[in-house]
Simulated assay, not measured.
Amino acid sequence: MKLMKTIGLAMLASAAMVMATVSAQAAERVLRSSDTHPDGYPTVEAVKQMGKLLEEKTNGRLGVEVFHSAQLGQEKDTIEQTQFGVIDLNRVSLGPFNNIIEETQVPSLPYIFRSVDHMHKVMDGPIGEEILKAFEAHDLVGLAFYDGGSRSFYNSQKPITSVDDLKGMKFRVMQSDMFVDMVGALGANATPMPYGEVYSSIQTGVIDGAENNWPSYDSSGHFEVAKYYTLDQHLIVPEVLVMSKKTWDSLSAEDQAAVKEAAKESVPYMRDLWQAQEKKSEEKIRAAGAEIVTDIDKTPFIEAMKPVYDKYVTSDKLKDLVKRIQETQ
């Protein structure tokens, strides 16, 4: 079955590659990169920028082609394809890695970061490098962290102004046990499902809503079917750019260094695009008539997360990681 699945994933990737237009034709070797977001999205453009930098640094030996809009599959499938070496590079939220790589659970914890700036200081420093290194034991090489914004709840039913308003509601979450427990701790019901199924599921009443950042709420069109958006900012989960260990091992030490440099140098480019996109998306969503709840007391939300921390922060290693993040100024 594992072999058949691997073959199936390879066929899926190959079909998508035929459909895509290769923009890095000048490179001798084009690395295939996956993203579920649409063309023009900050993460997509950042990996394209990484590809340009990589071509320059390797004198045309390496380039990157980004297969956006989930052409190679949803995140869970593309993680497996990257581990198998079918996909060379992959931009994924840390959330789907929570059940695979223990260390990714900590920056995915609700309210672990005080602000986006706090997240940047942590993930750009030694703690971030430590978490990237943890990918190597899982056939992946962690290259860099991108922004994923702050995630908040949106729904089709009513404005959410308190924890009590969430009780009994059904929300889509990423396929992560931690996010399921987070929603449960708030008294709501979590439904893990692929990102691409959310719009129709809200539209048909399978779920009441989901949670995400401004650009995703916009680019997915979810604001059209879920017009109530509450800025509780429960998660500030970084995005991560990873490379297949098989691809990595096929590169010379010189080209490996170039890949890491290009990835790191694409981060400030991504952040500039992200800040502009957040502003643009917020303006568009407000103009479309969505009801935005900003005046909310986060304290009860934070206090409700104690059982989530108790369940997932169990080892001394993770407790130390939490402590070090909280102490980062």
Rank of each mutant, 00 (worst) to 15 (best):
K121S: 09
R172E: 13
E261Y: 10
S176G: 00
F171V: 11
G196Y: 00
K260N: 07
M178W: 00
E130F: 07
Y229Q: 02
V116M: 09
V293Y: 05
P268R: 06
S250M: 06
A287K: 12
T247I: 09
H37D: 12
Y309L: 05
D164E: 15
E278F: 09
I127R: 08
V44D: 00
R29G: 00
T6F: 05
G8A: 13
S244K: 01
K317E: 12
Y111G: 08
A258I: 06
D164H: 10
E56F: 09
L109V: 14
W274Y: 11
F84V: 12
Y195G: 05
V141D: 06
L251F: 06
D295N: 14
L251S: 08
N155E: 04
S219T: 13
M50L: 08
S93E: 12
A276W: 03
S93R: 14
T230P: 11
M243Y: 00
L94V: 04
V86F: 04
Q81I: 03
P300G: 04
Q175A: 10
K227D: 08
G60S: 10
A262R: 05
M174I: 04
A210Q: 01
P268L: 04
E103F: 12
I101F: 10
I292D: 04
R324F: 01
V30A: 11
Q329C: 10
K298D: 05
I296H: 07
D310Q: 09
D316F: 06
V47M: 14
P42Y: 03
N59C: 14
V86L: 07
E129A: 15
T78A: 11
I236T: 15
I131A: 02
E130L: 11
Q25N: 14
T6K: 13
L94E: 03
E136W: 03
D272A: 08
T36A: 14
Q157V: 15
F67I: 13
N155S: 08
D165Y: 02
E265C: 07
L241T: 06
F97L: 15
E56G: 07
N90Q: 13
T161W: 07
Y199N: 01
F153G: 00
Q233N: 15
K133L: 07
G168K: 04
T82M: 04
Q74W: 14
P192A: 03
D117M: 10
I207T: 01
A262I: 13
R114M: 11
Q25A: 13
S315R: 11
K167T: 01
V267H: 14
A188S: 07
N90M: 11
E75A: 15
L273E: 00
E303V: 04
A287Y: 04
K52Q: 09
H138Y: 10
R29T: 09
S69K: 12
D255T: 05
G289E: 05
I79S: 06
Q275G: 10
S200G: 10
V237M: 15
H118T: 03
E224K: 09
V18K: 13
D232H: 15
Q71K: 06
N99W: 08
A27I: 08
A188V: 07
Q277I: 00
A262N: 09
G51R: 00
S156K: 14
L318K: 11
E224G: 05
L54D: 09
V66D: 02
Q233D: 15
W274D: 02
K260P: 02
Q175D: 13
